[in-house]
Amino acid sequence: MMLAIDHWAWANAWRDRSPALKTGVTLAALAMAVFSPWPAVPVMIGLATALAVTYGAKIPAKVFWRIWLVPAAFLLVGTVTVAFSLSTAVPDGSVPTEGVWGLPWAPSLQLGPLYLTVTPQGMEQALTLLARAMGATAVSLALMLTTPMVDVLMLLRSWRMPPLVLDLMLLVYRFIFVLFETTESMYRSQEARLGYASWRYGRRSVGILAANLLLRSFLRAQALYVALAARGYHDELRVLPRRRSAG
């Protein structure tokens, strides 16, 4: 998923738009989605975002949908629990028993002395929360999908983020991919030699892989430092800001 996000951040039609503008619009849309009292607003914002990403930034709807589903699944599980309320009262006593969603009764479950009930208020709360969270996720995802890391760093630099933090972000970003490639090639070479032929071998292979990855990371860090020093590195990774054709 991370690789897909990075790929589209470089390949979308809005890549060269001003990152400050994109961030501004995103923050405004986020605020609207989160603070609106009606669940319809974040839903609309989410839909509008999906359309903008598909037709504006020319990212396939399928890509957007698939990436959005990952956090959405977590959100669904998280918000469902809000719909339930736990009480000691008998449901047809103090708790209102008018139907939920057209059902003539509020579904309830007796757990010893406790009753697990879905109430209309709980249901409404859960729906609002879910709508907000999903709309907000769509908006944030749109920013991630249309802004390359280089631009994010540049924007943070213009916001006076300390250079040390930025350098770390840059290196982490670059070396995530190096680490990923190393892991992949090590895994393939283990697999080619039957390292994952059985569950027991697989467990052993994963251990070896992890240990080697750690060692290689240290060596890689050392080699990187030597290479940076060869090009005159002192204490800050200075690079030219990107010049964009569109302002």
Partner: peptide, 18 residues
């Protein structure tokens, strides 16, 4: 080992800036 930057252009600019 040598390339650390997020984009090609920026990586090339590193040495001259130093």
């Amino acid at each position: 080992v040598q390339l650390f930057s997020a984009s090609v252009e920026q990586d090339i600019s590193f040495g001259p800036l130093n």
